[in-house]
Simulated scan of single mutants.
Amino acid sequence: MTKIKQSGYVCSLDYAFQRVGGKYKGRIIWHLSEENVLRYGELRKILWDITPKMLTQTLRELESDGLIHRKVYLEVPPKVEYSLEEAGKELIPFINYLREWGETQMAKEGMI
């Protein structure tokens, strides 16, 4: 356990999963690693099963946690691009390992 200022003791694993856990965060990080930069509309097409509200909320959380960068261009219509911050790039080997593990488990269960 690590002592975190003003919040008592927390488990570092809980801290990590709070930043990348959830249905979409890992997928967003993975796709940004594959494409380097994606616009909001491109993310909506790739993540076809997410609502616009949930995508916006998830992107804001990832940005707030310092995992992705949001670049806004001052033009009409507005143009916004997302890319990985260094902390987000550091997650790629772990997300890839989880992806491979998931594929193996799905294959064992006859899902793929």
Rank of each mutant, 00 (worst) to 15 (best):
A107E: 12
G22S: 02
R70G: 01
G26M: 11
V37T: 07
G21Q: 02
G26A: 14
S33Y: 11
Y40L: 05
M111K: 10
V10C: 14
G8S: 05
K89L: 13
I112H: 07
I4G: 07
L62H: 08
Q18G: 01
S64D: 13
L13R: 10
Y24D: 13
K23P: 01
V37D: 00
A16Q: 03
L84N: 07
L43Q: 02
N96Q: 13
E86R: 05
K71Q: 11
V10R: 14
E109Q: 11
Q57V: 11
T58H: 12
I4Y: 12
T51V: 06
I92E: 04
K108E: 07
L55H: 08
K5G: 04
S12C: 06
M54D: 15
Q6E: 15
Y9Q: 14
L32A: 01
V10S: 15
Y15K: 08
A107D: 13
N96G: 03
Y73W: 10
D49G: 06
I95A: 03
W48C: 12
I92L: 14
I95V: 11
I29S: 02
T58P: 13
L84S: 03
K79Y: 10
K25H: 13
F17M: 09
T56P: 09
M54L: 12
R19N: 08
L55T: 12
M1K: 09
Y15C: 03
I28D: 04
P52L: 03
K25W: 08
L13F: 09
Y73I: 02
R70T: 06
K3R: 14
I46K: 04
K53R: 15
R19A: 09
Y97P: 01
M111W: 10
G88T: 04
I4W: 09
K79L: 15
T2N: 06
R44Q: 11
L13Y: 07
